[in-house]
Design a binder for these strands. Structure first.
Length: 800
RNA sequence: GCCGGCAUGGCGGAAUUGGCAGACGCGCGGGACUUAAAAUCCCGUUCCCGCAAGGGAGUGCGGGUUCGACCCCCGCUGCCGGCACCA
């Protein structure tokens, strides 16, 4: 058969769509499979080869599962709100709705041209009001349950994008979108109390099947630490200074305390502080530093003694000085620490810079040179003296603290609450109302969706205000509680909102009574397998787990965790081995490949190019190799005969069925394809193939290269679609050869290979080995010490 | 600094998890077809010595366990990713 991909690919795409082969049925007697991929942000640049690889694993799995008789839900949608679109809207003076619609149109055409088996009837668009209505609905539920709060703090602010950024969006002190240096700005910010879910998010990881690397990253990100809170009294002041420490057992080694520059007690007791001017000067200096500069690990600690305030160590009554220093952060623990320079390197550095005494309380190090953080015998610590294990000494100290009422055990998390607003237009309006009488009031549920008003000017307002603030008709409203005049919140939600629950909407995308019907959720959820990028592990993956867990806690969904299993694809690098980027000029457009070689070639190539989970560079020659393979597949139609197949061929066929079946499940697509290549090489060597065997081959190939598989199947008279035909079964007994070749080692070195009957005993195998000339020559004249035969694997003769 | 991962031919990568290292593909060399090129097909291709038969070395480095190690253990080195003054 001539391989005319330009004709056959659109032909089958249309036939599949007309036959509605990929539409999932709600409820069915078949087992269900919900395969999820991260929906794309519909950028103007269109699809990237990375998208193809990211979607191909679930694509192959979904196609295989359909053939295996599953009711498959494999949906797609668009994460359509976001800054790039808005920035483009400003630049071109076009409404973001228009841009978004055009981009979605483009994306969906591109995705279709690759032949992905998505259920297009369930497509969602997070920027449509029938979708974001429910995003707002969930937000209001969070608000009703006290998980939304407002706080005035220093926020990460991008002067270029003019938006407040979460810590996640400003990693490394750079804006995630434009890479401008992030500055600190005091602002009123809405937060979601994700920290309240820290423990649940941590524990939930034990119940899901994620790769260890992903679990570790999330564990790190959540950053649970166990320790104790301890109250220090301040001399002459009727207020305790509370600190958090992981080593309460070192309390006798405390020689000073440090407060973060922003610590509220400083202002509160400024009348007692004699060097307030100097302190304010230091604080100003700190405020100028970016979060990034401040968190840079530096040996040269800066700080200042607070003159006029003195703390008292609660365990021994000793008076100790208090400093402010920017190595202590207001955002972690209590914003103040007890400093134990002998056993904490940062405290040690500070003590050296400020000439503060150092008291050793744990033996084992040389504290004149550096802090000792290891285990050892407790000394200089009264009732703790002599204990040698930190677990025991910590437990004992916490017991004493609790008994005396000066402290208690506690935990801390590194994870911060989620800054949940942007001063931008193209996002979900936050459904809250500011009433001068009632305070902050939620928009009534029945008034949702709170639609984005039409505006002409998308430029952010001055001092970081949302463009919505410029529209009086939107801003001015009546309070739903008291009916008095009130004002709407004008900020919108961050990019991550819509994607935090989209997998639920796929279960019931057109529902206008609820975000999804509970029975449908019960049928489809949880997602059986979610594939996506490593870059989303600490943001999207945690945020969506948080929302889902919250919905579970209030009885709106049926499972605590949304995803049973998660996997991640490796990046496709440019041909030069570098990350693909426009500036490097190494970007490959998937549509070029579709046009030049065909969608099937592209699909096979992205899965064949290497280990699915690892990064691999693009290689044009290898693409051609995959095309060559498909040409050989097309050529099989010329080899069809009715001849009986050889036993050796039948064994290979069954081995291949087994390998492809297993490898797809393990995401070892490269070796699955390699097995198909091996089989086709063998078929060509034989020079013929029966129609029956060809069908088996095509079925195995069809998840990878469905268009060509369909075309040949139709041509040789196959009934219906191969896409929904039955997946081939293998006969385990036929996957083993009658005779096998095993290596023969002499003293562990391979010297020969002998062919022996598959199930033969040790004596037969050894006899065959010794009969081999080469083996004999190595054994001759020596004494056989040991003989080993591992059935089917190896023979080893040890001689002396 | 802490956490995780990786290291195999000229290249991407295989190796049933302790049993013939280099499957499959690319590239390269040789040949066939062709006036020629492309395409296609056949043969070869880890490295070193050898015309060959054959021999030796070999999975980042150094040790160890084992009849046998890419795989397990101990000690390094180098890359990649994440977190990071987290008390």
């Amino acid at each position: 058969m001539k391989y005319d991909f330009k004709k056959i690919e659109p032909k089958w795409q249309k036939k599949w769509e007309d036959a509605k082969l990929f539409e999932a049925k709600d409820f069915s007697d078949k087992p269900k499979f919900y395969g999820l991929v991260e929906f794309p942000y519909p950028s103007g640049a269109g699809m990237h080869v990375g998208h193809i690889k990211a979607y191909s694993s679930m694509e192959v799995l979904s196609r295989k599962r359909r053939m295996q008789g599953y009711n498959v839900l494999f949906p797609i949608g668009y994460d359509a709100f976001g800054l790039p679109t808005e920035n483009y809207a400003i630049k071109t003076n076009t409404h973001p709705r228009v841009i978004t619609d055009a981009n979605i149109e483009k994306f969906s055409n591109q995705l279709r041209s690759v032949g992905f088996s998505f259920d297009w009837s369930r497509t969602v668009d997070t920027s449509k009001d029938d979708y974001y209505r429910w995003t707002q609905w969930i937000f209001l539920k969070l608000f009703d349950h006290g998980l939304v709060f407002r706080d005035k703090t220093l926020v990460n602010y991008c002067p270029h994008c003019k938006v407040v950024l979460s810590n996640e969006d400003s990693q490394g002190g750079k804006c995630d979108i434009c890479h401008t240096d992030v500055i600190q700005l005091p602002k009123d910010v809405w937060y979601l109390k994700i920290t309240e879910y820290a423990d649940k998010l941590l524990k939930g990881l034990d119940t899901v099947e994620y790769p260890e690397a992903i679990k570790q990253q999330q564990i790190n990100w959540i950053g649970k630490s166990t320790g104790a809170f301890v109250d220090f009294t301040i001399d002459g002041v009727d207020e305790k200074l509370e600190i958090y420490t992981t080593r309460p057992d070192t309390l006798f080694g405390v020689t000073f305390m440090v407060m973060a520059p922003e610590h509220p007690m400083i202002d509160k007791y400024q009348d007692r502080i004699s060097n307030m001017d100097a302190i304010n000067a230091y604080r100003d200096e700190c405020a100028k530093k970016t979060e990034f500069e401040r968190t840079q690990l530096v040996k040269d600690k800066t700080g200042l003694k607070i003159e006029g305030l003195e703390a008292v160590n609660p365990v021994n009554g000793k008076k100790i000085p208090i400093f402010i220093a920017d190595y202590v952060m207001m955002g972690y623990g209590t914003g103040a620490i007890m400093a134990v320079p002998a056993h904490d390197q940062r405290d040690w550095d500070f003590a050296h810079a400020f000439d503060i005494p150092i008291i050793e309380v744990i033996k084992g190090g040389d504290i004149s040179r550096e802090a000792y953080t290891g285990d050892g015998e407790m000394i200089n610590s009264d009732y703790l003296n002599g204990l040698t294990n930190k677990k025991d000494s910590i437990a004992k100290m916490i017991g004493i603290l609790e008994e005396k009422g000066i402290g208690h055990a506690g935990v801390q998390f590194k994870m911060k609450d989620w800054a949940f607003n942007r001063q931008r237009y193209w996002g979900e309006p936050i459904p809250l109302i500011h009433c001068p009488e009632c305070g902050v009031v939620g928009v009534p549920y029945e008034e949702l969706p709170l639609r984005l008003p039409e505006v002409k000017d998308f430029e952010p307002g001055e001092d970081g205000k949302s463009p919505l603030a410029k529209i009086p008709e939107f801003v001015n409203c009546t309070c739903p509680k008291c009916g008095g005049p009130a004002q709407r919140e004008t900020d919108t939600m961050p990019q991550w909102a819509g994607s935090s629950w989209y997998f639920l909407r796929y279960c019931d995308p057109h529902n206008d009574k609820a975000f999804a019907d509970m029975d449908k959720l019960k049928y489809w959820m949880p997602v059986d397998w979610y594939n996506g990028g490593m870059e989303h592990v600490t943001r999207h993956l945690i945020y969506s787990r948080f929302w889902h867990r919250f919905l579970y806690d209030i009885g709106e969904v049926n499972t605590p965790e949304p995803y049973s299993k998660r996997s991640a694809q490796g990046m496709i690098l440019g041909a030069d081995g570098e990350k693909m980027s426009k500036s490097r000029g190494n970007v490959v457009d998937p549509l070029d490949i579709v046009n030049q070689y065909g969608a099937d070639t592209l699909r096979v190539y992205v899965l064949f190019m290497g280990d699915y989970g690892s990064a691999a560079p693009w290689n044009d020659s290898s693409v051609k190799g995959c095309r060559r393979f498909l040409e050989r597949v097309a050529g099989l139609t010329d080899l069809i005969t009715d001849e009986k197949k050889k036993v050796s061929y039948e064994t290979l066929l069954h081995k291949t069925i087994k390998k492809v079946t297993d490898d797809i499940e393990a995401q070892k697509f490269n070796t699955a394809i390699a097995a198909l290549m091996t089989l086709i090489n063998e078929i060509y060597k034989e020079g013929s193939i029966s129609k029956e065997d060809l069908v088996i081959f095509l079925k195995l190939l069809s998840p990878f290269a469905p268009h060509i598989a369909e075309e040949i199947y139709e041509m040789i008279g196959g009934e219906g679609f191969i896409t929904v035909s039955e997946w081939p079964e293998f006969d385990e007994s036929k996957t083993v050869d009658a005779t096998i070749e095993v290596g023969v080692q002499v003293n562990g070195k391979v010297r020969a290979a002998v062919t022996i009957p598959a199930g033969c005993d040790k004596d037969t195998a050894l006899a065959a080995a010794k009969a081999n000339d080469r083996v004999a020559s190595f054994v001759e004249g020596k004494k056989i010490v040991k003989e080993i035969y591992v059935p089917g694997k190896i023979i080893n003769i040890v001689v002396k």
